[in-house]
């Protein structure tokens, strides 16, 4: 029994890293997101101006050497405001995804493992949730809870949760059919042990892909809701809220919406590209080719 290849044994993580390294575009996206996160964390030190400091002598100016992204209607530096707004936008996306995960993953696992009427009940409830028009549901949730960024993100999280639920249910269903789950049962493992030790480790990969893509979706939703005035409330600002307020001066100073708009577009694109790269590197590998 010595016909095992002498290649060093690789854990799942090592294999994933080896494959991910080949995804150049995803590496760029990941690099961009890391830089963006660092900029958001260190915004007070990086930003050239105080984002709230008004300068009424220089309002609605275009990009210049002093103000790279121009100034807004109160003479505030747009670059500093974009940097500070990134904290709100990123945090909002994380919040929404965490809420969606918390609402969607456990019932998805339960539905996939238990099946039968439990599954039917959970899936019909999900169908009911998905049959609401998303914007109306978001507005309704915010109307009940009051307009604030957290409430807007709860609404977005609730709206995104059915997809996580369905994804978890589908992957759990297929893993639950695997013989190794039956084998674990025959050994005498409890259902909780099987879910924790055998099902969860084998269903998280597709989840990572979805998280990355949904962070982008959540960011877009936050931007949309803040644009409508249902999300971020002044003096706090997110990219969406900046576009919403800059919208009024679109003819005089297009730079007011161009830069936060670009920030949204590039970040969402980076998240999608990262999601694609993750999907390609996390795919099930059965046997090494080399």
């Amino acid at each position: 029994m010595s016909d095992v290849a002498a290649a060093p044994s690789q854990s799942g993580t090592v294999r994933f890293l080896r494959r991910f390294r080949r995804q150049t575009l995803s590496l760029w996206a990941l690099g961009f997101l890391i830089v963006l996160t660092l900029l958001a964390v260190f915004a007070p030190w990086v930003a050239p101006y105080d984002p709230l400091q008004q300068d009424l002598d220089h309002v609605l100016e275009g990009p210049s050497a002093d103000h790279w992204f121009g100034t807004d209607e109160l003479g505030r530096d747009v670059l500093s405001r974009v940097l500070f707004a990134s904290r709100v936008s990123l945090l909002a996306a994380v919040q929404a995804v965490l809420i969606a995960l918390a609402i969607g993953v456990p019932p998805g696992l339960v539905a996939g493992m238990w099946g039968g009427w439990v599954d039917a009940l959970i899936m019909r409830a999900t169908d009911a949730l998905m049959s609401f028009p998303p914007l109306i549901l978001a507005v309704a949730i915010i109307a009940v809870l009051g307009p604030s960024l957290t409430n807007a993100m709860i609404a977005v999280g609730v709206l995104l949760s059915p997809t996580f639920l369905r994804l978890m249910r589908a992957t759990t269903l297929s893993v639950a059919q695997e013989t190794y789950v039956e084998a674990a049962q025959s050994i005498g493992c409890t259902r909780g042990w099987i879910i924790r030790k055998h099902v969860l480790p084998n269903v998280v990969s597709p989840l990572f892909v979805q998280i990355s893509v949904f962070a982008g979706v959540a960011m877009l939703a936050e931007a949309g809701l803040s644009f409508l005035g249902l999300g971020t409330q002044p003096p706090e600002s997110s990219w969406g809220a900046m576009v919403g307020r800059g919208f009024r001066y679109i003819a005089h100073a297009p730079s007011l919406i161009v830069f936060p708009g670009l920030a949204i577009a590039v970040t969402v694109l980076a998240l999608y590209v990262l999601g694609d790269g993750l999907r390609d590197s996390l795919g099930r590998e059965t046997r090494q080719e080399s």
Binding site: G12, T179, Y180, E182, A183, A184, S186, I187, G188, H198
Partner: peptide, 29 residues
């Protein structure tokens, strides 16, 4: 009573090390 299944490709959890797979019955009991 223990069982060995037909398909050796699906009866071992792909995310576990061999040591953990063989030790699992001992740990669980």
């Amino acid at each position: 009573l223990q069982m060995v299944f037909q398909d050796p490709y699906s009866s071992l959890d792909p995310s576990k090390l061999i040591a953990d797979i063989v030790a699992e019955p001992l740990v669980v009991h």
